[in-house]
Structures are given as C-alpha cells and as structure tokens.
Simulated scan of single mutants.
Amino acid sequence: MNFAIVSAYCANTFRRLRDEEDGLALTEYLLLLGLLVGGVILAVGFFGSALSDGWTQWADWATVEISNPWNGDNAGAAAAAYGAADDGAGG
C-alpha cells in the first residue's frame, strides 16, 4: 500500500472521530458503568464474608419461619393470627 494513502486515511479517520460528538454520551455512560461495576466488585470483595454470613442467617431464618410458622418463638402468635389456636371454648 502507498504510505500517502494510509496516512491520509488515518488522518481523516482521526479528524472524523475528534469532530463527531455522537459517541460521547455512550462513552460517558460506559465509563460510569465501568466505575459502578468496579465499585460493586470492590465492595463485595471487602464485605464478602460479612455478606455471606448475613445471607446465611437470613436463609436459615426464612427456612424455619416461612416453611413452618407453627414452630419457634412465635408459635402461639402465628396460631392465633391464623385462627388455629384452641381457646378452650369448644365448637
């Protein structure tokens, strides 16, 4: 290839990219998205073990309380709320 043609093509491409503003908004959004993703990755890395412990505790609570609300500390309240408590009145 001729060096003059390649040089002119590169100069024209550079000038066109410099003068166009269509891609600026997309570039800014991609930079912000990259910063956001990086922040999330750093936060998960920093707080990872605490997040894991919290999710495990929540999952254990949800498994016990939601799957069988009649067991545990709130058994009487749950039974009363659902009308399943035996109040001794007979029926």
Rank of each mutant, 00 (worst) to 15 (best):
D22C: 03
G23M: 13
G23W: 14
G23Q: 11
G23L: 14
L24W: 12
A25K: 11
A25F: 14
L26Q: 15
L26H: 11
T27S: 13
E28A: 15
E28H: 02
Y29Q: 13
Y29A: 13
Y29N: 08
L30T: 07
L30W: 06
L31W: 04
L32K: 09
L32R: 05
L33T: 12
G34E: 00
L35V: 04
L35R: 08
L36E: 09
L36A: 11
V37F: 07
G38I: 00
G38M: 04
G38N: 08
G39C: 04
G39N: 07
V40P: 01
V40Y: 11
V40I: 14
I41G: 01
I41P: 03
L42E: 07
L42F: 13
L42Q: 10
A43F: 10
A43D: 01
A43H: 02
V44T: 03
V44E: 05
G45F: 01
G45S: 05
F46Q: 05
F46E: 00
F47W: 14
F47P: 00
F47I: 03
G48L: 03
G48N: 06
G48R: 06
G48K: 05
S49Q: 15
S49W: 15
A50S: 09
A50E: 07
A50L: 03
A50D: 01
L51P: 11
L51C: 09
S52G: 07
S52P: 01
S52T: 08
S52Y: 08
D53I: 14
D53Y: 08
D53W: 12
D53P: 00
G54E: 03
G54P: 01
G54Y: 02
G54N: 10
G54F: 08
G54Q: 04
W55T: 15
W55C: 10
W55I: 15
T56F: 08
T56H: 09
T56V: 04
T56N: 08
W58S: 11
A59E: 09
A59V: 04
A59S: 11
D60A: 11
D60P: 01
D60N: 09
D60K: 04
D60M: 02
D60C: 07
W61Y: 13
W61V: 03
A62F: 06
T63E: 05
T63K: 05
V64T: 10
V64C: 00
V64W: 02
V64Y: 09
E65D: 05
I66R: 06
I66W: 12
I66N: 05
I66F: 12
S67K: 15
S67L: 14
S67F: 13
S67R: 15
N68L: 02
N68Y: 00
N68S: 10
P69W: 02
P69R: 01
P69H: 08
W70D: 15
W70M: 13
W70F: 15
N71G: 05
N71T: 15
N71A: 13
N71D: 12
N71Q: 12
N71M: 12
G72W: 01
D73V: 10
D73K: 07
D73G: 06
D73W: 01
D73L: 05
N74D: 10
N74R: 11
N74Q: 10
A75T: 04
A75G: 09
A75M: 01
A77D: 01
A77M: 04
